[in-house]
Simulated assay, not measured.
Amino acid sequence: MTAINAADSVGDRSRWFYAWMAMACLAIAVVGFVPTYFVPLTRGAAFSPPFQHIHGLLFFGWMIFFCTQTWLVATGRAQAHRDWGMLGVALATAMVASVFVIVGIRINAYANPEFAAGMRAFSWVQVSGMIFFGSVVALAIANVKKPDIHKRLMLLATIGLLDAPIARWFLVAMGGLPPAVNGEIPPPPVFVDLIPGALSVMFLLVPIIFDWRTRGRPHPVYMIGAGVLVAKYATLVQVSQLAAWDSAARWIAGLGG
């Protein structure tokens, strides 16, 4: 009975751990996007193409959805969690598609050829993030009947999104966007995502340590996922400068006319 009670205790701790990790991811997104997007939006100062707002709604919706799903499991409503699963599939698919649309819109928005080239390079930050997110969510769906793997993949996919809101922290600290040049704001250099990316990878240490304490060892999902993320950020600048990526970004931009 002692062993059974101990296993139940670990299971309860694990369910609530993932609920609180989801809330932490949401909090990071709120801290990043409320002052830089939502507050300006309420003041009528967030002038963006209409699809930009749809894109933002999808990503913020994912954070809320992920929190809701983990909360359902933590409170013993696993069937409701499964019932809402298809919404997550649809939402993740729409998120990936929206990034390609946004990339095309942003590249085509520049009249200055130098700025357009810079945005094509920077778009690798967004596209590589979606390749990671989409691939991990697909693996999570494939492992939906293996809860220990599924829940870790879903958390890994969500942590992979955190470089964007973390980057907004630095944007606020630096006083906002750079001044416009001939009416156009220069695109950010690719290297600005390296520190936010490193911080998001470091956030993975929390579930890794939790696994170490509850399982005796880190789960392979986190170790492999951390390795892939480190490789992604380590090669971010180099890949963004490749002629092959520039051609791919031009193709994406061409989809938007």
Rank of each mutant, 00 (worst) to 15 (best):
A7E: 15
A7I: 15
A7H: 14
A7R: 14
A7M: 14
D8F: 12
D8A: 13
D8H: 14
S9E: 13
S9T: 06
S9P: 09
V10H: 01
V10F: 00
V10Y: 02
G11F: 13
G11I: 12
G11Y: 13
G11T: 15
D12S: 05
D12H: 03
D12V: 04
D12N: 06
D12Q: 02
R13N: 07
R13W: 03
R13Y: 03
R13K: 08
S14Q: 09
S14C: 10
S14N: 13
R15D: 02
R15W: 02
R15M: 04
R15H: 03
R15A: 00
R15T: 00
R15G: 00
W16S: 08
W16Q: 09
W16E: 09
W16C: 06
W16N: 11
F17G: 06
F17Y: 05
F17Q: 03
F17S: 01
F17W: 05
F17P: 00
Y18I: 00
A19I: 00
A19E: 02
A19W: 02
A19R: 01
A19F: 05
W20L: 10
W20D: 07
W20Y: 15
W20Q: 10
M21Q: 03
M21I: 03
M21D: 05
A22N: 03
A22L: 04
A22C: 12
A22D: 03
M23F: 15
M23T: 13
M23I: 15
M23K: 11
A24H: 03
A24C: 11
A24K: 06
C25A: 13
C25H: 06
C25F: 08
C25Q: 04
L26P: 07
L26R: 09
L26Q: 10
L26D: 02
L26E: 04
L26Y: 07
A27T: 14
A27N: 11
A27F: 14
A27R: 07
A27E: 08
A27C: 11
I28E: 04
I28G: 00
I28Q: 03
I28Y: 02
A29N: 01
A29T: 08
A29V: 01
A29D: 02
A29K: 00
A29R: 00
A29I: 00
V30W: 02
V30H: 04
V30M: 03
V30I: 06
V30Q: 03
V30N: 04
V31H: 07
V31N: 12
V31G: 09
V31F: 13
V31Y: 11
V31D: 09
G32E: 06
G32F: 01
G32M: 10
G32W: 01
F33L: 10
F33S: 04
F33T: 08
F33M: 10
F33D: 08
F33R: 08
F33A: 05
F33I: 12
V34F: 05
V34G: 02
V34W: 06
V34C: 06
P35I: 07
P35T: 07
P35M: 08
P35H: 14
T36M: 12
T36V: 11
T36R: 06
T36P: 07
T36W: 11
Y37N: 10
Y37W: 11
Y37D: 10
Y37A: 07
Y37R: 12
F38R: 05
F38C: 09
F38H: 07
F38Q: 10
V39M: 13
V39G: 12
V39F: 13
V39E: 15
